[in-house]
Amino acid sequence: MAAAPEAKFTEEQVLWVKQHTPKLMTFAITRPEAYRFSAGQFSRLGFRDGEGFIWRAYSIVSAEYADTLEYFAVLIENGPMSAKFAEMKTGDTILLDKTATGFLLPERFPDGKDLLMLATGSGIAPFLSILEQPEIWQRFDRLALVHSVSYVGELIFNDRLAALAEHPLIEEYFHKFHFIPVTTREQTGHTLGGKRIPELLKQNILAQQLGWQFNPTDTRFMVCGNPEMVKDTLQTLLDLGYTMHRNRLPGQILLENGF
């Protein structure tokens, strides 16, 4: 007999909601004591909707050891889940699927020295979680995060990333880290502007900006963002001689569409 729907999820409380721009928000919910996940995975969040439910996957921003679960959402016009989020406030109830899932996990790479994380929009969420795990800093010699957005006002995590320099589990390794913000529709003096991530790879701009030499022996790529960016970045990397990582056939690329 199939389990009742209620056996597959818990009801959690919304602890806080922060609206960064009209379209970008972060929020945190209570974390069940039994809830486990690996940095890079996502949760299924839901609401009751009439006689049924509405569910959607969101990458977890929190560290594995955090007491609460934090998420980053982009509100989509006329999106049913976005409509629920737009009305959500502290103290409300939200549904949490009991099982986290996803395979955007850096530990899947058996080797490599440099880790390059490429994100657009909400695709940065799993990398924020990954970067709070001391194991990732111990594992790789160098780490870089590229976050591409349309406008500079959408770079809402810059301060959070800078604060890793004083994180008690990370600060001794922070010198390994490089952050490259990218704005595709706005030119500023503090970001790379006007080009998408695939172009920055193809034209060797990212490598020059970092001062690295990308190569299949040392460089590992993790990609998360809108489906078009993921598809185009994958093709660019394949054209440059890199391969997808498979469990039985190690490669240099892991990817996931952002939620």
Rank of each mutant, 00 (worst) to 15 (best):
I170P: 05
E135C: 11
Q235E: 14
Q252H: 04
F47W: 05
T26N: 10
L240Q: 15
E6V: 11
A165F: 12
Y35V: 10
G123K: 05
R142Q: 13
A144S: 12
F157M: 01
E51R: 08
H167M: 13
E186C: 11
P22Q: 06
L201I: 05
G121S: 03
Y71T: 05
K195H: 14
L15P: 04
T243Q: 10
T236I: 03
A4Y: 11
T101K: 14
N78I: 09
P216L: 01
I197S: 07
A162P: 00
N158K: 12
G46N: 07
E171A: 14
K202P: 06
E64N: 03
D141N: 13
S122K: 11
P80I: 03
W212C: 00
G79M: 11
L254Y: 00
T183Q: 05
V14L: 02
T243E: 11
P106W: 15
L116I: 04
T90N: 14
G52D: 13
L128M: 15
E228S: 13
L96G: 08
L105F: 12
M81C: 02
E70W: 00
E11V: 14
V230Y: 00
R246A: 05
Q13H: 11
H20L: 12
A73K: 01
A144M: 07
W16M: 04
L95K: 05
L15M: 12
F47V: 05
P216V: 00
Q187P: 03
H190M: 15
T188V: 04
M88I: 12
R248G: 03
R248A: 09
F85P: 08
K113I: 06
A2Q: 13
E51G: 06
P106Y: 15
D218S: 10
N257T: 06
L234A: 09
L69T: 05
E132V: 06
Q13R: 15
R142V: 05
R31E: 07
R44V: 08
L164A: 04
L237V: 02
K89Q: 15
G79N: 14
K84C: 09
L69E: 11
E87V: 09
N204K: 03
A66C: 07
Q203L: 06
T120V: 06
L105I: 13
D232Q: 14
T21K: 03
A63R: 14
I156Q: 02
M244P: 01
I54E: 08
G225W: 00
F72Q: 02
R160Y: 08
V17G: 07
L131R: 04
E135W: 08
L206R: 01
K18I: 11
F85I: 15
